[in-house]
Measured scan of single mutants.
Amino acid sequence: EGLCAVCGDNAACQHYGVRTCEGCKGFFKRTVQKNAKYVCLANKNCPVDKRRRNRCQYCRFQKCLAVGMVKEVVRTD
């Protein structure tokens, strides 16, 4: 048992190249599959942790990419 590289929640295994929780795994997968574009309403440096991970989708997705999650391994079929 480890911690999610994105939000610090409990994470049992790796998803898309990085140890993440189920919440961040699902968020990343949905974002890539929908080709979603998010906008940060602040300064693009919002805190992303277990308690606040749902407040800014833009910053959460940027953190997913920054920690090494790989868009190309998300299935789109």
Rank of each mutant, 00 (worst) to 15 (best):
V70I: 14
Q62E: 04
G8M: 11
C46E: 00
K63N: 02
K71V: 07
R30D: 10
G23W: 10
C13S: 13
V67K: 13
C24R: 00
P47I: 12
H15E: 07
V74L: 09
G68Y: 07
N10I: 06
M69Q: 01
K50C: 07
R55V: 12
A42C: 02
R60D: 03
V74M: 12
R51E: 13
G26M: 04
E72V: 04
H15L: 11
V32I: 04
A36K: 04
Q33R: 04
D77V: 07
V18D: 08
T31V: 09
A36W: 09
V48L: 06
R30A: 08
R51L: 12
V32A: 15
G17D: 02
R19P: 12
C64S: 03
M69N: 07
T31Q: 06
H15A: 06
A66D: 14
R55A: 06
G68K: 01
V39H: 01
R19M: 06
G26S: 05
C59D: 00
Y38H: 14
V6A: 02
K71P: 14
V73I: 13
C13H: 14
R55L: 12
T76Y: 14
M69I: 01
C56V: 00
C21R: 00
N54C: 02
N43R: 11
T76N: 15
G8S: 15
P47R: 08
G26A: 09
A42S: 13
R51S: 10
M69R: 01
V74D: 14
P47C: 05
D77E: 14
R53S: 13
K37V: 07
V67L: 09
C56S: 01
V39W: 12
A36L: 12
K63A: 10
K44L: 08
K37S: 05
A42H: 15
F28E: 00
K63G: 02
A66F: 04
C13V: 13
V39K: 15
A36E: 11
M69E: 02
K44T: 10
E72R: 11
V39C: 06
N43I: 04
Q14V: 14
Y16R: 09
C21T: 00
V74S: 08
G26H: 14
A42K: 15
A66Y: 01
R55P: 14
K44Y: 09
Y38C: 10
L41H: 09
R51A: 06
Y16S: 08
K44H: 07
D49C: 01
E72C: 03
R55C: 10
L65V: 08
L41P: 15
R51T: 14
N54A: 06
R19C: 12
F61E: 03
C56G: 00
K44R: 10
V18H: 03
L41T: 08
K29P: 07
M69L: 09
C46Y: 00
Y58F: 13
C46W: 00
L65Y: 03
R75Q: 13
P47V: 09
Q62H: 03
C64I: 02
R53K: 02
A36F: 15
R52D: 11
F27W: 07
K44W: 07
D49A: 06
F61Y: 11
R19W: 09
N54V: 08
M69G: 02
R30I: 06
N45D: 11
V67Q: 00
V48C: 06
V32W: 01
K37Q: 10
R75T: 15
N35Q: 08
K34C: 10
C13F: 14
T76E: 14
K34H: 15
C40W: 01
K37Y: 12
R53D: 06
L3R: 15
T76M: 06
D49L: 05
G17R: 06
R53L: 07
K37R: 08
G68S: 04
V70M: 09
G17P: 00
D77H: 04
K29Y: 03
V67A: 10
G23V: 11
K29G: 05
L41W: 01
L65M: 04
F27E: 00
T20W: 05
V67Y: 15
N35G: 10
C40R: 00
P47L: 11
R19G: 09
K29A: 12
F27Q: 00
L65W: 04
V48A: 02
M69W: 04
R52F: 08
C59M: 00
A42M: 05
V73F: 12
K29C: 04
R60A: 10
G23A: 06
E22W: 05
R52W: 12
A66P: 01
E72P: 14
K25G: 14
D77M: 08
K37L: 07
Y16C: 14
R60V: 12
N54M: 03
T76C: 14
N54L: 07
C24T: 01
R51Y: 07
C59S: 00
N35E: 13
F27D: 02
V48I: 04
V39P: 14
P47F: 05
N45G: 03
Q62K: 13
V67F: 02
R52T: 15
Y16E: 14
G17F: 02
T76P: 11
R30G: 04
C21L: 01
A42L: 07
C21W: 00
F61R: 00
G26W: 03
E1D: 05
R30F: 10
G17A: 09
L65C: 09
G68M: 08
A42N: 02
F28I: 04
K37E: 05
R60S: 10
C56E: 00
Q14S: 14
D49V: 03
N54F: 06
R60W: 12
V70E: 13
F28G: 01
K44G: 09
G68V: 00
Q14I: 05
A66C: 05
Q57P: 14
G68D: 02
